[in-house]
């Protein structure tokens, strides 16, 4: 219904024209507007209204059970950027996002290419790869916690081969350059969470890439083969460039998941020793609902919103341009 309404707004070049056109709305258009009105109001209040409220709280002094909405300026933000835990959160989120997206892209493309080879039992494999997507992050977190815990699962094998089983709880940061209050680098313990998250979300990128690969007409490959290109060259020069737009979509969707991640970490590792697996979502929950630091919690939420916006806004702008 939406597309029917929208052109009538956009096509009017001046207010007078659009006003005229608006008068011409027929019953159908009015009815469709009436149907989307409740959701417009609900989104305005419950999404944008509360984002604005959080923004306001993040600038207040409300850091106890008693609401104190006096203006505090950027105090809460300044506190966070000086805070050991929040600095660690930013570091962890950065490397978690980076490795998680790389893993999802690489494994997704690899498995999609594999499925595209017209193998036997393709639908079986496809279902196996997609299945983890049907689970919630909480379930994934609990399972992988058992699998990777030093006392159980995979590490019992590693121990048999004399390998260190304590990487899951490691507090090492590589290379660990002192930066402000934290050691900057890749926290080893984050790898465990990346494995679990990538295991769950790879199915999504497999589906996306597979759709992309299937959309490439067979004629193009034929033509390339006729020109004497090797299979490897066909992938490198033709197939991969043609699925590149899909990569952009996958990156954006995965980035917004990983920047906001909470449930997986909460179920699997918690904040971790020395906060090596802590993320802003967990910090926000604990500081707001355990410590009653409402303003600090709101500030964390706003920073999370802005970090997601870095990915989403350019995407929305470019996809709007693409439409018109």
């Amino acid at each position: 219904m939406e597309p029917k309404v929208l052109p009538s707004f956009q096509s009017g070049s001046s207010l007078a024209v659009s006003a005229k056109k608006r008068k011409k709305w027929n019953v159908d258009q009015w009815l469709s507007f009436a149907f989307i009105l409740p959701s417009i109001i609900a989104v305005a209040v419950f999404v944008y209204g509360f984002i604005a409220w959080s923004g306001y709280v993040s600038l207040s002094n409300w850091n106890s059970l008693v609401p104190d909405l006096s203006f505090a300026g950027l105090k809460n933000y300044l506190f966070l950027f000086k805070d050991f835990r929040f600095q660690a959160d930013l570091r962890n989120t950065l490397f978690f996002t980076l490795f998680f997206i790389l893993a999802v892209l690489f494994m997704g493309l690899l498995l999609a290419v594999f499925l595209d080879q017209k193998i036997r039992g393709e639908s079986l494999f496809r279902n196996i790869f997609f299945f983890p997507m049907a689970l919630s992050f909480i379930v994934t977190g609990v399972i992988w916690q058992w699998l990777l815990n030093p006392a159980t699962g995979v590490n019992l094998f590693l121990k048999k081969f004399g390998l260190d089983s304590l990487w899951y709880t490691s507090v090492t940061v590589i290379p660990g350059i002192q930066w402000s209050k934290i050691q900057f680098g890749i926290p080893v313990a984050v790898i465990a969470v990346v494995i679990a998250a990538a295991w769950q979300m790879t199915g999504f990128s497999v589906a996306m890439y597979l759709a992309g690969l299937r959309a490439i007409p067979e004629e193009i490959r034929e033509a390339a083969r006729m020109d004497g290109a090797t299979e490897f060259q066909i992938y490198r020069k033709i197939i991969f460039p043609m699925v590149a737009p899909i990569t952009v979509s996958v990156v954006i969707i995965m980035a917004h998941i990983s920047l906001k991640i909470f449930d997986l970490i909460y179920a699997m590792t918690g904040p971790g020793a020395n906060f090596v697996t802590d993320v802003p979502g967990v910090y926000m929950f604990e500081t707001t609902f355990r410590g009653n630091y409402y303003a600090n919690g709101a500030a964390i939420s706003i920073i999370m919103l802005l970090s997601v916006a870095i990915f989403i806004v350019p995407y929305l702008i470019s996809s709007r341009k693409g439409e018109s």
Binding site: S64, T287, R290, G291
Partner: peptide
């Protein structure tokens, strides 16, 4: 002590256990 202090103390202890 109030929850706010408890939260901060838990964070400080968590860091201490490692460092």
């Amino acid at each position: 002590a109030p929850e706010g202090f408890v939260t901060k103390a838990n964070q400080a202890v968590n860091i201490f256990v490692t460092q």
